[in-house]
Design a protein around this nucleic acid. Structure first.
Lengths: 280, 280
DNA sequence: CTTGACTCTTCCCCAGGGGAAGGCCCCAAG
DNA sequence: CTTGGGGCCTTCCCCTGGGGAAGAGTCAAG
């Protein structure tokens, strides 16, 4: 009877409890504050925290779940319920998160490897000036945005090829796209998908023929996946402004090899900016 | 000539530059502050940041390296050097770090899976009281700490078995260890490695014979790897204090099956605490 | 009673930004 | 020239999960 009252409660202060549980004193204080592991007794005058020996098991559970990087609030939720189903579900949810992080690390690692493989440091673009003559193209115009653009381009080239072959014409050069607007991640814009043809082109579909403007171009070639073409643009626009030229029209990309055949890292894309050369 | 002076510098404010580079305005301001990507020009009166188009390439490099989670200071170091060797080395160092994190995620995931597999929620230890009779053991005493303990126990059992068989005696029960001190992560302590034998035991090696104390024990059995035995101890000490008993001597672990044969998750370890039962 | 080891709170720090508040600034249209 | 709306500025607080230090109070053993 007396045993239950006085209870041989065996309260231990935070330092000893810290050693018992291998949780840092700092962590224990935080777990107190957040309600995750409040001490059995706090001395009102001194503020000292005292833990019961039996609390070490809860602490151990916290330590284990923290060791797999579970957030504190989820640990709290798990320890608050008695339903093994809920516990199991919470563990599964956390497993998904861990698996996601694992996959992310893997993707980063893979990408980093590809960066390492690329012998050239970073973005060795060589800019040249070229004189282009106007050329006849079959074209379709598309309004799109960054998330749809890959699909739209594929579909556009498909219907354009169909229109060309329907007219009995065949391509006379590499396909290209004129980017009439800057397409950011949230802005939309027009692009013109073009295939060079010999002579004039007419069609009753969306496709039409026109003469693509020639003139002086600042030009570079990007080798690699289309998604990584941004540096080529930056190099060109930077080069143009540094050399005192001015952009004279929308840029165009010419696809020098076939993404259906060539692996992404070897794709070649030529980027042209029409410029005014202010002879200085 | 005039072109070089006035320079068609084409300065863009931070919002446009943010869209060009897909770096957030907030990030750009931080990169300015940290010297990673200072704008080409800052208006002294308004504080407005203006970037040159040519800076977009450096920004792109930052974005790429951040996308693989490289720390800002390392990116700074990479962009500050022109030596491709150093760049390559920095990338390799970062790859090691990523690989390490990947491995850590994998370990956590694996451990979490094992937690999920364990059907029972957390730590279903059943504590019982048992009366033990004294028994003769052959023993060696070892002073060790947490980092050496696994090796020391293995070596201790090895030499103890040698001593026993040298005397022509054979074990009469499961091996056990008496833990005379609490062994925390930084404290050292004595443990006594014991093998039950029939009759008295003498040896001229470090091994000696003695009678292991009997008495009333609080007992539970841990199933799983030795490293995870802490909850068993916590359950026992908590149980003892809650039931108004007192610990009467050093605890002992009895190894009920053989770690050389049994996989870690099925290892059985019985833990006994000698207690005074204060009949109340 | 003293002393040394514990423990308390509070504050600042880490990375890499996100978000909001409050206040200028810039530019184009009227 | 003025006005309005959107852009931009700084400063502050927030996130995670603690680590480390400062200064003061407390506990227990000799």
């Amino acid at each position: 009877m007396a045993g239950e009252e006085v209870g041989a409660v065996n309260l231990v202060p935070i330092g000893r409890f810290s050693k018992m549980t291998r949780l840092s004193v700092k962590a224990l204080r935080m777990y107190d504050e957040s309600g995750l592991l409040p001490p059995a007794y706090v001395d009102p005058s001194s503020g000292y925290r005292y833990y019961e020996l039996a609390q070490a098991n809860r602490a151990e559970a916290v330590r284990i779940l923290r060791s797999v990087d579970m957030p504190l609030d989820e640990i709290l939720a798990i320890l608050a319920t008695d339903d093994p189903e809920l516990v199991h579900k919470a563990l599964l949810v956390h497993r998904e998160r861990l698996a996601g992080r694992l996959a992310a690390q893997e993707r980063m690692l893979t990408y980093l490897e590809s960066l390492i493989q690329r012998k050239e440091g970073i973005m060795p673009y060589e800019v040249e000036i070229s004189e282009e003559t106007p050329q006849q193209v079959a074209a379709v115009k598309i309004h799109t945005n960054l998330s749809r653009i890959a699909n739209d381009i594929g579909a556009g080239f498909g219907s354009l090829m169909q229109a060309i072959s329907g007219e009995g014409v065949s391509p006379s050069g590499a396909p290209l796209i004129v980017y009439h607007n800057v397409i950011d991640q949230e802005t939309e814009g027009d692009i013109e998908i073009c295939i060079p043809v010999d002579g004039e082109f007419c069609s009753d579909s969306d496709a039409y023929g026109r003469e693509l403007e020639g003139g002086t171009m600042a030009t570079t070639v990007h080798r690699g996946p289309y998604e990584e073409i941004a540096p080529a643009y930056h190099t060109l626009t930077g080069w143009i402004s540094e050399h005192g030229h001015e952009i004279a029209g929308p840029p165009r990309e010419t696809y020098l090899n076939d993404p259906q055949v060539i692996p992404p890292e070897d794709l070649l894309t030529r980027v042209d900016f029409p410029i005014h050369t202010e002879a200085g």
